[in-house]
Design a protein around this nucleic acid. Structure first.
Lengths: 199, 199
DNA sequence: CGAGTGATTGACTTAGATCAATGACCGTGG
DNA sequence: CCACGGTCATTGATCTAAGTCAATCACTCG
């Protein structure tokens, strides 16, 4: 389920961990690419900085996320990576990883499959952001993430995290869920949401 | 630059085009996967339908977009694909494509590279949606899409399309650009936007 | 020339952001 | 063992930016 479980033993063996202080730079634009990073702890932000010093965040990676996949296929980085908090990252060096991908077609296929899945879920999340109403956005999340029974949804983390994922403030999400529950559209119990039968 | 220029000649040779009327189904969930689709004309929506018949759009694919990459690695589809308008799609059959990917590591690498790039741009667009202010969202777009001079941005299509990409109504975008121009932050000329030097 | 679309601006409304406060819970260190 | 700091969950009040509705002008295309 994790973003890196497709990696083979030889690649894992070559991994190196690195600890970063808050504010420390992991790499910057123009630098030679090192490989694939996995965030083990903390938060790393990938940013592009324009002439006037404004930062545009390209990705905010938290524990479990992977970063700079595209850098595997590029000689240099095109953005800066900076630790937003104290953080630990794991580097799978490009040389080993690319060699392994070349040597082992199954690994490459697993890599491609993982990327394809990511593309799919990212597109879905982006599509969800096109929905303006908070309630409909929650409904979209619920129908997309329902288990096989089509009714039950397990919340992966806190509601605050879900709110961030949905692009809502946590207050807005709390209110929306409260209203949906009051209207009998959903039922809540600890980490679960059940959608009531709509007839 | 197109989403399919990584495809090799043998794969292209096996492609088949198909025309769809508006409302017609391309495939539905549970059906055996056919391969990789490219939208040549019109719009196709990928939807998951819940018990009560509500549709949740997973992707809205327009001409030039590719769809169902992940289905290459799955035996059955997990959503429905329906033509929203009259449309033409090109199918690169799974059997040929997978065989070619297996046979030709360079092709597989090109495929992975394309997917990795897509992941990157999708993440960037998603990150942009986390910005609430219309003006800051436009600024994010401008800094991310600036040419090498860091000032000039070529608009790929119409402003309406850009507005949709940014997750704004076209009115909101027009107003925001007008205000930014009035404030001297940008200059506009036909299909170009220039960011004024900020000191 | 009329239909269709993009660009633009105005007026009005509202949903969600923002600010603020509270209670529950949890781990921890004295 | 308990007080304390921290975070999550929740709700209230207020405000505003962006959505919605609407009208106009410029263009293009058949």
């Amino acid at each position: 389920m994790s973003a890196t479980d497709w990696l083979s033993a030889p690649v894992r063996a070559g991994a190196r961990d690195r600890k970063l202080e808050a504010g420390q730079t992991l790499f910057h634009a123009g630098q030679r690419t090192g490989g694939l990073y996995e965030v083990l702890d903390g938060k790393i932000r990938l940013v592009r900085v324009d002439r006037s010093g404004r930062e545009a965040i390209l990705q905010l990676a938290s524990a479990g996320d992977t970063l700079a996949e595209a850098s595997l296929f590029s000689p240099t980085y095109h953005c800066d990576a900076i630790a937003t908090t104290e953080a630990v990252v794991r580097l799978y060096p490009k040389t080993i990883l690319l060699a392994e991908l070349k040597r082992d077609p199954n690994l490459l296929e697993a890599f491609a499959a993982m990327l394809a899945r990511q593309v799919m879920t990212l597109r879905t999340r982006l599509e969800r952001r096109n929905i303006h109403s908070a309630r409909d956005r929650v409904r979209h999340y619920l129908t997309v993430n329902a288990k096989s029974d089509g009714r039950t949804i397990a919340l992966p983390g806190t509601l605050k995290e879900l709110a961030a994922d949905l692009g809502l403030t946590h207050e807005a999400l709390y209110r929306t869920l409260a209203r949906m529950e009051a209207d009998g559209e959903i039922e809540r119990s600890d980490g679960l949401i059940k959608v009531r039968k709509t007839m």
